[in-house]
Each structure stands twice: as structure tokens, then as C-alpha cells.
Design a protein around this nucleic acid. Structure first.
Lengths: 212, 212
DNA sequence: GTCTATAGTAAGATAGAC
DNA sequence: GTCTATCTTACTATAGAC
């Protein structure tokens, strides 16, 4: 019983704070270094130096370079998720019920986030990530569109999934273009244009093969 | 003068044939190995073993792993290019003059090629390539759409480039879906659907900001 | 032109003191 | 929890015989 006290003498609360602080420093450093050099171009040494931390600490908290990158990505995803669902919920409360319109509201919030965090957005679409990252992104994309499933009222046929994939990639390409903009004004124009193209693609709903 | 003969004694023609043969073997082996294991997963040793060649030979002919991968990609691109432009030329000869229709003809030929060489198509969209490959792909995409520039009669404004980018990514996503199909029948349906979505997106031409 | 054997390099990962 | 020093490994790339 006494050993608990001797092994960590009255410092539990303090160490929690320190942990969060260290992780934050590593994540922030990773954001800057990865954004600048890409995943493969960046070395662990660069990150820990910028964070004022150490290799061992990084491994202790995240497990490795790949996991650090993924942690950064998950924060980014969570922010997108939060903004999108909040926007859709808000629109619903305002009386909007049309699936297409609700989809556009969510998409707009997503594109907005791509502008606000454009350094991360560019990083994640650059194609330079840890092994298997493209697959993870793809899964996430499908989750994202599945979440709007009730919204768009799609069936689970292969052609409906194609419809979802096309819309997803359209918004994804839009996000890339938004992140590449240099001014707020340009970004706004691009966002409006992308939403318009999505609306056009959705006109008529999922394509059906002509019945012979 | 005589030294030319002594250094390569009467074997010029024979060696040319052998060179082409070796390169072909390396390219074919690379196609199989990269398609199966991806770029980073595959090692040079795997490729030369399958080709019945050697590391030194690979370096002699291609210069390295990355260059071998790029050579494979360029063959794939050339095939796409050839098929697309032939199809467009053919349609023109048949009297088709509408830009949108001609674009769709080219896109269809492109998607067709993605089905025929689906192993390569999947490889190149997997996101696992040599450093800088995603950038090269992106440049190539823009070239491809620029080639249809006269066709679509686009100006060089940023919003017209967005229009091109959206269409390109739509066809690109379509190619990915086509390559993932398991039967010819499915692939045909997907191709028809993708062309339809492209047509919808083009309805009304490039988006213009509302004049205030 | 082709091959084998080897060198070089770089980076991620770990062990163990504090 | 944090850090430094070291290890390991896996690969590319080259040198030099045939």
C-alpha cells in the first residue's frame, strides 16, 4: 500500500497536466514539420527538436512516426465531423428537410474547415502518408457518405454506392482546390462553385440503367 | 576505325534485340510485382527475380526502382492518350461537333482503358508511388484536360480551371470504380453512369459568380 | 550488356539510466 | 515520464569481373 506512494510520490495530478502538454507540443510540431516536408521527407528527429522533446518521449506517447501522423489526421477529421453535423442539425432546426439541401449544408461546412485548416488539408491530400493511409482515407470517405445515408436515402446497390463515391470525390476535389486558394475571397467563390456542381450532379438522383 | 569492330564484334543488331527483350521482361515483372505489393512493398530483388534478370541490369536500363515505376506509368498514359484521341478523331469524322459530346467520347475511351488495364489503374490510384509521384499525376491530369481545351473552349480564369479540375477528378474517380469492377457487365454500367454524371456537371458550363 | 557481391546510408525503433 | 546513445534492418546504389 505504501509502495504506491513511494513509487509516485504525490504527483499524479501534476503529471497528467504535463502529459497533455507534451502531447500537444508533439502534435503541434508534427503539424508544422509534416506540412512543410511531407510524411516521408520529415524525420522523427525534426519533430522532436521543434517540440523541444525527445525521441523516447514521442515513442512513449504515440508509438511511432506513423501513429503520430494518424493522430494528427484524427484531430482534423474530428473537427470536420463536428462542424458538419452541427451545421446540418442547425439547418434541420431551421425547418430545412430536403435531403439534397441538407447534404449541401454539410458539404459547405466541410469545405469551410478545409479553408480554415488548409495546411493540414493539403498535407492529407498530398498522397504522402504512412503505408496504408490512402486506404484509411478511403474508408473514412465512405463512412462520411454513409453518415449522410439517411439524408440522401440511398439503397445499398452498387450503383448507389457509385453515386455516393462520385459525390464524395467531387467534394474531396473541391476541398483540395479550396485549400490551395490564397485569399478568403477566392475560397468563397470556389466553395460556391463546388456546391453548385454537386447540386448539378445530384439532379435526377442516382443513375439507373435503361430498362430494355 | 578498326577499333569499332573489335570493341563490339559484329553483334550490334543482335544486342538491340536483346536489349528490348530485357527491358520488356523487367517492365512485365514490375507490372506484376508492383500491382501485387505496391511500390514501397516491392523490392528490387523481387522484380529482377521474376524477370530472370539482375539488379545491375535493372539499373543499367532504367536507373532505379522509381524510374522503372515511372516507365510503367508512362506506357499506361501513352495507351490512354492514344485510345482517347483516336476515339475523338473518329467521332469528329462522323460529324460530331458538340464540345460536350466530344469530351464524353474521350472520357469513355479513357474509362474503357481503365477496365482493360485495371491492374495498372488500381496501382496508380493506390497512392503508393515514388516520392513526387502524386504531383506528377496531378500535372498529367491538367495536361489531359488542357488537351481538351479547344474542345471545351475554356478560358484561363481560376474558376474555369476549377471546372476542369472537377471534371477531371470525376472521371478519375470513375476510372477507379471501373477498375474495381469484377465483371465486364458491371464495368459497362459504371461507365455509363459516370458519363451521365459528367454530362450533368457540364450542364450550364462553368459556374459564374452572381453579378451584384 | 549482364551479373554478383558488397558498400553505404539513413531512419525508425529500443534499452536502460535518470 | 523523459532522455541519450546505440542498434538493427532493409534498402538502394555501385564497383568490378565476365
Amino acid at each position: 500500500m505504501a509502495s504506491e506512494l513511494t513509487s509516485r510520490p504525490a504527483s499524479g495530478a501534476w503529471q497528467w497536466g504535463r502529459t497533455k502538454q507534451t502531447q500537444r507540443a508533439l502534435l503541434d510540431a508534427a503539424r508544422a514539420v509534416f506540412a512543410e516536408q511531407g510524411f516521408s521527407g520529415a524525420s522523427i528527429a525534426d519533430v522532436v527538436e521543434r517540440a523541444g522533446s525527445s525521441v523516447g518521449s514521442l515513442y512513449h506517447h504515440f508509438g511511432g512516426k506513423s501513429e503520430l501522423f494518424l493522430a494528427l489526421w484524427q484531430e482534423h477529421q474530428a473537427a470536420h465531423e463536428k462542424a458538419s453535423s452541427a451545421a446540418v442539425a442547425q439547418a434541420r432546426r431551421s425547418g430545412e428537410a430536403d435531403p439534397t439541401a441538407l447534404f449541401c449544408v454539410g458539404a459547405r461546412a466541410f469545405l469551410e474547415g478545409s479553408w480554415l485548416r488548409r495546411d493540414l488539408a493539403m498535407l492529407f491530400v498530398s498522397g504522402d502518408g504512412p503505408p496504408g493511409f490512402e486506404l484509411m482515407k478511403r474508408r473514412r470517405e465512405h463512412e462520411w457518405i454513409s453518415q449522410n445515408d439517411a439524408l440522401l436515402r440511398l439503397a445499398d446497390t452498387s450503383l448507389d454506392r457509385l453515386y455516393a463515391a462520385i459525390l464524395t470525390s467531387l467534394i474531396g476535389e473541391g476541398a483540395r482546390e479550396v485549400a490551395a486558394c490564397r485569399t478568403r475571397r477566392q475560397a468563397n467563390a470556389v466553395i460556391d462553385a463546388v456546391i453548385e456542381y454537386a447540386r448539378r450532379a445530384m439532379a435526377g438522383g442516382p443513375w439507373k440503367p435503361p430498362t430494355p
